[in-house]
Nucleic acid binder design. Structure first.
Length: 676
DNA sequence: AGCACGCCGACT
DNA sequence: GTCGGCGTGCTC
């Protein structure tokens, strides 16, 4: 029994709150302990927002109580919690653990992950939620027996899938091509999987790349799931609704949460299914720190919370294929293989009009009598690139040197950078004054085909003019890749036009991307409708023609392994003040001695920031070394942030100019384009 | 980020 | 003998 001085009243153990403070500083990315004062004891529960004193960032800072504890009174000096912001427990323990694990994997801060997961607080929505949870909580939405039966029918197309899902399996699922009504088959499949989990009282989370896919998934769920159980979580929602929906996922009653990349963090209760549609889409690549791809976040989450994990697509990303090959994912096969009818243009097939071979043209002409025909092109606009009419050099803006394009038929060339029109243009190479259209955009294709198919309705769909669906009546639908509308009953013919141009992009993954774009467009065809891939030969064309996307992904992986390119290995990029980059590499050598001798590329000089010499390096590492590499790089980031007095050197040098990054060392894991 | 602590030069 | 420069380190 410890002695107490007479003037201090002996007290029992005190309540302690472990608090995650909301600060961007990497050195504060850990839990801080505070005393819970007796008057806050009722409200200070795990998950609530609090304000706490911290010797920085003003006097008080926002944070979340992550957990509570007790300890003897006199062990150490602690500050008290200042305020409980609201009694709403909006950060459940499972979400904190997920954020922590995802941040650790990416050498980032838990706060940065939580910023993606927890929408901005809206007091009105929060009050409504608090009132509702206390009165009518945990009421389960009734599920119609016929819906569940339909869901089971759909899942039955893949013998073994239901078992795999029940056993919290992890699967790579090749979606059946086709549409029923205006709903693509993939959307019905994922909706059915979600409904099957919901029927067992478990939640589902489904992430899709963009809002058009979200609308399709929503349509599929409308046919199968109780409306009260489907919760949209995406950035397009009004702030109040978004926060209300977030709070809804915290309820005891299971939900189907759908949205774009960050929905993978939705903190639903009893996660039974976590699914990604079309994981090869670059929209799943998170552009905010710590830059974690939704696929990786999903992998981390499934390892923590269990439940089934599904990567579904018409094509196979090399990343998912890697997981298949190491035995992490299984591939449930469909009972009946359904493939679109792909027609590769014969080399001797001469174009009847413009860039369309005669066979494809005939095919379109026959099909258009009975319904819509899809024409996929690479780029929007009229003529996206212009060249000199004489010497064929790219036409450049006289003012800024930017590339010129033609906004419409016969229009004056315009600069793509500065938007000036190039009246009186003259070639800088040969002084000619005429330009030539070097490429066709969707508008020009629509123009040309509209004349060839006189009297037919023409629909143009691209990023700027999105079209969700078209009906089943005859129409020419010209769409840029990725923007294809769904046609009711499927397209009667599909023409994939600019394949050769698309394949030429200087991108490590261009083959994979093209196969994805083409497969997704082909999947919109009606059963038996011809899909013409024009002017492309080689492995990607063969993979499409034989509908063997997994085999193509496998080939990609085999090619990249000896080159040490992702996803065969992981790659980290380190950038910062030259001495700190050097220091980080030294530390890495000590922390991860099993790194290959050629793991580090660089460092090379990077552009100076306010007069400081900067450097950049890449590190290639095996997946097994991930934890060691991430921890080491994180330690370097913290060390650099703590010791950095660089910003003081800056002083009065530049008044209002853009300030250099707060951290003098920045680290990014799993870079998509491994360029120094 | 901010703010306190601490160890050398100029001061009433 | 004291005030205050900013370099260094930490934040419950």
């Amino acid at each position: 029994m410890p002695e107490h001085p007479a003037h201090v009243a002996p007290r029992g153990p005190r309540r302690i709150a472990h608090v995650l403070v909301d600060s961007p500083l990497p050195q504060l990315d850990r839990l801080f302990d505070y005393v819970v004062p007796p008057e806050l004891a009722d409200e200070a529960a795990p998950g609530v927002r609090v304000k706490v004193p911290l010797r920085s960032a003003g006097r008080v800072i926002q944070g979340f109580i992550v957990a509570l504890g007790e300890e003897a009174d006199e062990e150490r000096a602690l500050s008290e919690i200042d305020t409980v912001v609201s009694a709403a427990a909006v950060l459940p323990d499972r979400l904190y653990r997920l954020a922590r694990a995802v941040a650790d994997r990416a050498a980032g801060s838990a706060n940065d992950v939580l910023r993606l997961a927890v929408p901005r607080r809206m007091v009105r929505a929060e009050k409504a939620w608090l009132a509702q949870t206390t009165s009518a909580s945990a009421e389960e939405a009734p599920m119609e027996a016929s819906s569940l039966e339909r869901a089971r029918d759909i899942l039955g197309e893949y013998p073994g899938l239901d078992d795999a899902l029940e056993a919290s399996g992890r699967v790579a699922l090749d979606a059946r091509p086709g549409v029923s009504g205006s709903v693509p088959a993939w959307a019905s499949l994922l909706a059915a999987a979600a409904v099957a989990r919901l029927a067992r009282g478990e939640s589902a989370v489904i992430a899709v790349p963009d809002h058009r896919d979200l609308a399709r998934l929503e349509a599929a769920l409308a046919e199968l799931a109780p409306a009260e159980s489907v919760v949209r979580l995406d950035a397009e929602l009004p702030a109040q609704e978004r926060y209300a929906n977030y709070l809804r996922t915290l309820d005891e009653a299971p939900v189907i949460a759908i949205g774009n990349r960050s929905v993978v963090y939705a903190p639903v209760t009893r996660l039974g299914l976590l699914a990604l549609w079309d994981d090869g889409d670059s929209l799943f690549d998170e552009p905010l720190a710590p830059y974690v791809h939704a696929r990786d976040a999903a992998l981390v989450r499934q390892s923590l919370e269990g439940g089934a994990l599904v990567f579904c697509g018409h094509s196979r990303s090399s990343d998912v294929q890697r997981l298949v090959e190491i035995g992490f994912l299984t591939e449930p096969a469909p009972a009946r293989r359904v493939t679109p009818k792909i027609v590769l243009g014969a080399p001797q097939d001469t174009p009847a009009t413009g860039r369309i071979p005669s066979a494809a043209f005939r095919s379109a002409r026959e099909a258009i009598a009975s319904g819509p025909v899809l024409v996929q092109v690479a780029r929007p606009g009229y003529a996206p690139t212009l060249v000199c009419g004489e010497c064929r050099a790219p036409a450049r803006c006289a003012h800024c040197g930017g590339p010129l394009f033609a906004p419409a038929r016969g229009a004056t060339p315009t600069c793509a950078w500065c938007a000036r029109d190039a009246r009186g243009w003259q070639c800088s190479q040969c002084e000619a004054t005429t330009v030539r259209l070097a490429s066709s955009g969707s508008e020009r294709t629509a123009d040309e085909l509209g004349r060839a198919f006189a009297g037919v309705r023409v629909v143009v769909a691209d990023g700027a003019h999105p079209v969700e669906t078209v009906d089943g009546s005859p129409a020419l639908v010209i769409a840029t890749r990725g923007a294809e509308p769904v046609a009711e009953g499927g397209y009667r013919a599909v023409l994939l036009l600019d394949g050769d141009r698309m394949l030429q992009a200087p991108d490590l993954r261009i083959g994979e991307s093209c196969l994805r774009w083409w497969s997704n467009a082909a999947a919109l065809a009606a059963p038996g409708a011809p899909v013409h891939l024009v002017a492309v030969t080689g492995p990607v064309a063969r993979a499409l023609a034989t509908w063997s996307q997994p085999a193509y992904a496998r080939g990609e992986l085999l090619e990249r392994a000896p080159l040490k390119m992702p996803p065969a290995v992981r790659i980290a990029r380190i950038e910062g003040d030259a001495p700190q980059v050097d220091e980080a590499l030294v530390r890495l050598g000590a922390d991860a001695p099993r790194l290959a001798p050629d793991a580090v590329i660089g460092p090379v000089p990077a552009p100076e920031v306010s007069g400081r010499k900067r450097a950049r390096a890449l590190v290639r590492f095996e997946y097994a070394l991930g934890p060691a590499v991430a921890a080491s790089l994180r330690a370097s980031v913290v060390a650099a942030a703590v010791s950095s007095r660089a910003r003081r050197v800056r002083g009065p040098a530049e008044p209002g100019r853009s300030r250099p990054p707060a951290n003098t060392l920045s680290v990014r894991l799993d870079v998509a384009d491994p360029e120094l």
